[in-house]
């Protein structure tokens, strides 16, 4: 970043230059301060108080909200559900995304762009629309899925796909995979296309083709992109909100509650803003930790 070859370096010019830089940075930094950094400070501060949506008086409770959260079953259910979605999404979205990308990269030729376009398409649909479409497909009364399941002689779940607390979180996981696997596929495909093709030819001479080539050449050469894909999926799994809010609202009986929906419920339906802030801080710590990991891996790459 050396700028020594400047012909004019009068001090007035330099001061003006500094002012220009400051002016160019101000709008972005101001927005970040007001809507990102100050809220971070406020969420930590507010987690030490008891207060409602419209209440003017805040009661200091110290770490009381945290004690309450760690003793709250629903908080642990929410955290567990986030983990189910994170791990399930890594398996489904990154796993199938990698397989689809590998096949589209070298396995098939005809209709490659068409299939890539179709599989990626749900990414541009809002999660709300995706949730509503699946709500109808899975509906116990008018849903086509039940009609198909009954048509082949099986019995659909009695309480409905999303109404049965023992399976609902897994159904939501499936819907998320429907929406995001294409995104992972495209991400990984971009990495695969950067792998020089003559490596495969050289490996073929040594007898490594097909599955063996996938295992020994494809996977190691996209190692970094796979790590990024896993991190993006992990962050996404902790941030999940829209899809669950629309399909189940966290129910039935909190069985699909995640941190995001639980924060929303506590803050804006029940009005326990301080308690919601304490859960938010937990989510914040997880997100910042993952962000730090992401930074470290991208530095290495």
């Amino acid at each position: 970043m050396s700028q020594t070859s400047r012909p004019r370096s009068r001090s007035g010019n330099l001061a003006a230059e500094k002012l220009t830089y400051a002016a160019m940075l101000t709008p972005a930094l101001l927005l970040l301060a007001v809507f990102v950094f100050i809220p971070v400070a406020l969420v930590i501060y507010g987690s030490l108080f008891d207060f409602g949506l419209t209440s003017r008086d805040w009661t200091f409770v110290g770490l009381g909200n945290y004690v309450e959260a760690f003793g709250d079953d629903v908080f642990w259910i929410a955290l567990r559900n986030n983990l189910i979605i994170v791990i399930g999404s890594i398996v489904l979205q990154v796993g199938f995304g990698t397989l689809l990308a590998a096949v589209l990269d070298r396995g098939v030729r005809l209709g490659r762009t068409l299939m890539r376009t179709i599989i990626f398409a749900p990414m541009v649909i809002s999660s709300v629309a995706v949730g509503l479409i699946w709500l109808i497909i899975l509906d116990p009364n008018v849903g086509p899925l039940n009609a198909v399941v009954k048509g082949v002689g099986l019995t659909p779940p009695k309480l409905g796909w999303l109404g049965d607390p023992s399976i609902s979180i897994w159904v939501v996981l499936g819907i998320a995979a429907w929406q995001y696997t294409g995104f992972m596929m495209v991400l990984i495909l971009a990495g695969l296309q950067a792998v020089p093709k003559d490596i495969y030819q050289a490996a073929a001479l040594d007898g490594a083709t097909g599955l063996r080539a996938f295992w020994y050449i494809t996977l190691p050469s996209i190692r970094n992109i796979l790590i990024v894909a896993i991190l993006i999926t992990t962050v996404g799994g902790f941030k999940v909100f829209d899809l669950i809010f629309v399909t189940t609202g966290g129910g039935p009986a909190n069985s699909t509650q995640v941190l995001g929906t639980y924060i929303y419920l506590q803050a804006f339906n029940i009005g326990e803003m301080g308690f919601a802030n304490a859960i938010s801080v937990v989510l914040l710590l997880i997100a910042v930790g993952l962000g730090w990991l992401q930074l470290k891996t991208s530095r290495k790459a």
Binding site: L32, I38, I263, L283
Partner: peptide
């Protein structure tokens, strides 16, 4: 600014609403 990228809006919902 990179640190700001790590912060999800879901985790600062209450203060953003207050602001």
């Amino acid at each position: 600014i990179v640190a700001g990228f790590a912060i999800p809006v879901q985790a600062v919902l209450v203060p953003v609403f207050q602001i």
